[in-house]
Each structure stands twice: as C-alpha cells, then as structure tokens.
C-alpha cells in the first residue's frame, strides 16, 4: 500500500492550467522531495492534497483512503499535516498556546466550552514536549510576535509534528533561513521517525538532496522526472528545466 497516491490530478484557474494530469506515488516512510522552478505548481499541489483547493479532477488517496470528497479539516484528522511556506501562526499568543491549538484541533475537547484551556495538562505537556523537541522549550511562554523568523519556522514544524501525522507535507521549510538555522532545521527533520511519511517542497535543490529517498521534478503542473537522487540528477530533462538555467 502506498502512503500517498495521486492520479491524473487536474486543476485550472480561469484558463490557466496549473495542474495537468499529475501522478505521484509515495511509499510509507519515504522522504519524497518535490523540486521545480517557481510557478511549477508545487504549493498548489499541496493545497489540493490538503483540500484547501478543490481539484477539477483526478484522485488523491492516503493509505488507501480516497480523499477527494473528504473535507479539508477531516483530512487532518485522518493523519495529514502540513507546514506553510508563508508562516501563518497566531501572533498574539505564546508559542505554547500555538502548539496547544494544533493539538486541540484533533481533540474532542475542542468543543468544550466549560473547562479551562490552559489547565489541560495533557495538552500542555505534549505541547511543551514538542517545543522541547524543536529546541524551543525554554521560550515556550514567549509571545510569538517576539520570536525570530527561524524560530517561527520551527514552531510551524512543531505544530505539524505534534498532531502525530502519518503523512507530513513540508512546504519549503528552509525558506528565508540563515545557514545556521537551516542546519538546525535539517537536524530536526532527520530526527523524525520513519513511521511518518514526508513530502517536502524545496525550491533550492542543493539543501534538500541529502534528505530525499526519491525526488519528483515538477514543471508546469506535471511531474516530468521521478526517481532516486542519482536517476533524477542524471536525467537530461532535469538539467534542461531546472539545473540548466
């Protein structure tokens, strides 16, 4: 069984075809890298996998469950989590509160109007543990607005990890980071256990190559080359559309 299977995915905005019959197979536990030039439709693909954008046609399934008609929020409950290229967090709240909100999204407790949110030990402890894991445990009580860009990236990852996803989508997790911060995030991603399948978008191929088991090269809404690192690098079409420029 594949972790993520996408077949014949199509999407147009107005007359612009942004996804043109895209196919993608990701095995359980795999680290799959999606690369491609700007405007290749990488983030649009993620948005369709999570359901934030509804595809015009095709199929998306996760561990055998067809997702096409599952609302976006339900897909999260089925074990699909993601990070965003453009950080969208809750700026007035503390780091801990941000991660707790992420946990609460999958907890029945989210409908409870009577208990006290910040007294829910099981949420607090797991959120604190997640922040410890990404190296932000000391500043858990700091408001998000007082953190650096690199720290926010790690909060994003903590929020995705804490949901215990089966499939994790990372949208350019290195974007805008300094070299040091990038190394921290790289080390962090390496610690994620293999029972989490990871699909990562990266614009800059060099930083993510080591991480990937398999690589797909996207170009104008299609996967044009797919294979192991060596296969993809050796393929002349990769050079043509991506490395060549």
């Amino acid at each position: 069984m594949t972790a993520l299977s996408i077949k014949g995915l199509v999407k147009s905005f107005g007359g612009l075809r942004v996804t043109r019959g895209l196919n993608l197979e990701v095995a359980p536990g795999e680290r799959h890298l999606i690369i491609g030039p700007n405007g290749a439709g990488k983030t649009t693909l993620f948005n369709q996998i999570t359901g934030e954008i509804t595809p015009d046609g095709g199929s998306i399934s996760m561990f055998g469950t067809e997702l096409m008609h599952v609302p976006s929020r339900r897909r999260t409950h089925l074990g699909l989590s993601r990070t965003y290229q453009i950080i969208t967090l809750f700026p007035h709240d503390t780091l801990l509160h941000n991660v707790m909100l992420s946990l609460l999204g999958l907890d029945k407790l989210r409908w409870n109007p009577l208990k006290r949110f910040d007294a829910q030990r099981h949420l607090v402890d797991r959120a604190q543990a997640a922040l410890d894991q990404v190296g932000l445990g000391d500043i858990a009580q700091r408001p998000l607005s007082e953190t650096s860009y690199g720290e926010r990236r790690r909060v994003e990852i903590a929020m995705a990890l804490v949901q215990g996803p089966k499939v994790l989508l990372l949208d350019e997790p290195y974007a805008g980071l300094s070299i040091d911060e990038r190394r921290d995030v790289q080390a962090l991603l390496a610690t994620i256990p293999r029972d989490v399948t990871i699909v990562m978008i990266e614009h800059n191929m060099d930083v993510a190559l080591d991480f990937a088991d398999r690589i797909s090269v996207m170009y104008f809404g299609e996967v044009i080359v797919e294979g192991t690192r060596a296969e993809v690098v050796a393929n002349p079409r990769t050079k043509e559309v991506y490395l060549g420029h």
Partner: peptide, 26 residues
Amino acid sequence: IFIHSPFGAALRGTRDQPRRMNALGY
C-alpha cells in the same frame, strides 16, 4: 468560562487565522 475554555481558544483562533484553523482540523 466560555472565553477561557478550549472552545474559546478555538474561537479566537478562527478570528485570527481561519484558514489555518481549518487546516488544523477545526
């Protein structure tokens, strides 16, 4: 009690980042 409950926290989340809240499972 309502505002400080888990539901209240979720409500404020939908005010600040509705799309994100949806993606988080709300």
